[in-house]
Write a protein that binds this DNA or RNA. Structure first.
Ligand SMILES: [Zn+2]
Ligand SMILES: [Zn+2]
Ligand SMILES: [Zn+2]
Ligand SMILES: [Zn+2]
Lengths: 149, 149
DNA sequence: CTGCCTGTGGAAACCGTTTTCACTTACCGC
DNA sequence: GCGGTAAGTGAAAACGGTTTCCACAGGCAG
């Protein structure tokens, strides 16, 4: 489950950031959306909530949130730099390449064996990792098969 | 082992692309480097090999190579869009966050079990995946521990 | 309520990337 | 080897996303 607006907001405050109206608009956009959004999309949706919102503030807020780990930067092979609300704890995500839906999941220990093996073989000390899966969500599979007969 | 210049060059030709001097310079840069390089870095190094090289051609060549799977786009949380020569077959990479060295490795079956489980639980059809590991290479571990006493 | 200091947002600057277009070059057939 | 031809090239201009600047606004502590 992705973090909600209140959780993200109070975390920002405990970190010393003021909880302003523009920032709340950005939080709400990210919390309400199950997708990954570009800064421009966050801006557009945010303006519906708080019309005076500026694009600059969207960038600044996204950077703060990413630093705090409250949102994740999602990278796509073409069209990087989109953002999605994090889930609780360490997690990865699965992106629908048709509609952009993002599902978070916990990697579990699936990778720890791989990491251990690589450390032994290469001497690398692994600090972090990053896993993204790409595919089609159930809804888009249905749509597509209907369209194709 | 990363692909060499000759392998990449002949693959380009069989795909119908001419093997020009500027393109060979780009291939050589990528084949010789164990790191991931930004387009600007490829351009700088390429000019040492072929001084008339243009930045535009670097971009175009990188796009072709990425489409053919001969180089991989490496995404870093900060500073996306760098490129590294691929290895043979499907593979992932491990990036040294201190010196930028990239090691390719095969994901093996570690991920297929995860993919199967996710497909069952979520209904997503997984087409592709993308795994990056971040850490410190043996050389940088040594350097750092020396520096720190 | 008041003041201070963080935060805001329009405009301009910035910079990586793409497009344009006249010129060049690899490659095929002879 | 030697054109002919279509693909490729690169300088410069256009483009678009991101960052910086700076005067102003508004949370929050006292
Ligand atoms: Zn990226
Ligand atoms: Zn979908
Ligand atoms: Zn993980
Ligand atoms: Zn290193």
């Amino acid at each position: 489950m992705a973090l909600d607006q209140v959780t993200m907001g109070s975390r920002m405050q405990t970190e010393g950031y003021k909880l302003t109206r523009p920032r709340r608009a950005v939080l709400q956009v990210l919390a309400d959306s199950g997708e990954h959004l570009s800064p421009a999309e966050v801006y557009a949706r945010g303006k519906a909530i708080y019309p005076r919102l500026g694009l600059v503030t969207v960038y600044r807020t996204l950077e703060i949130l990413a630093d705090l780990g409250l949102v994740k930067r999602v990278h796509l092979d073409d069209g990087c730099h989109t953002y999605a609300a994090s889930a609780v704890g360490h997690n990865h995500h699965m992106v629908c390449t048709l509609c952009g839906a993002v599902v978070n999941f916990e990697g579990g220990e699936d990778l720890s064996a791989l990491v251990r093996r690589l450390t032994e073989h290469t001497g690398y000390r692994i600090n972090d990792h990053w896993l993204e899966l790409f595919g089609t969500c159930p809804a888009c599979q249905t749509t597509r098969s209907e369209r194709q007969g």
